[in-house]
């Protein structure tokens, strides 16, 4: 049953423990070089701040959020560590996809739901995750993973809250996934 063309060409995923060790080494390297862990949502925030500063400079100068960002960071928001790191993530994932023959346009979803439903849920999930990442000062990468690496209390609380909530609500959304 797994002998169709697509399956044969597809390279299997890496052993999760090997991947975990490599991931840990990446975080270690980030701390050794830049004194900080990796992140993701911060790059989106920088992009938004840059966009608002360009499109509505008046608004950016008045609204608290953008003002605070400007004061604490300074310079062009796009010229930040996380933005360069996220560009690297896109390139790295792209290279991995090519090597493993996983490059394909598709909407991945459980056979029980439609693509449209999957996309609506993806959008809602993205909005919630984006909002939560700002409130919680970082997402799974910046707050939970990197926070745990430096043994920050915040990293562990954040990890427990994210995964605990997802486990709690998993039952109600099981149709979407299995």
């Amino acid at each position: 049953m797994e002998t169709n063309f697509q399956q044969v060409r597809k390279t299997r995923y890496m052993n999760p423990y090997v991947a975990g060790v490599l991931l840990g080494l990446v975080v270690l390297a980030a701390n050794f070089i830049a004194g900080r862990g990796v992140g993701a949502s911060g790059a989106v925030k920088s992009t938004i701040v840059a966009a608002v500063e360009t499109i509505a400079p008046q608004h950016a100068a008045n609204a608290t959020f953008y003002k605070d960002y400007g004061e604490s960071h300074g310079g062009n928001p796009l010229n930040s560590w996380l933005v360069y790191q996220m560009l690297g993530v896109l390139v790295g994932a792209f290279l991995s996809g090519i090597i493993a023959h996983r490059m394909k346009w598709k909407v991945e979803h459980s056979p029980k739901i439609t693509s449209k439903r999957r996309l609506i849920f993806a959008l809602m999930g993205g909005i919630l995750f984006g909002f939560g990442s700002q409130l919680g000062r970082g997402c799974t990468s910046g707050s939970a993973l990197s926070g745990m690496a430096v043994l920050s209390l915040q990293g562990f609380i954040s990890m427990a809250a994210i995964f605990g909530t997802a486990f709690t609500f998993a039952y109600f959304f099981r149709k979407n996934w299995i």
Partner: peptide
């Protein structure tokens, strides 16, 4: 002179 970090 601590490095800045997190997703901030």
């Amino acid at each position: 002179k601590v490095a800045s970090g997190g997703c901030s």
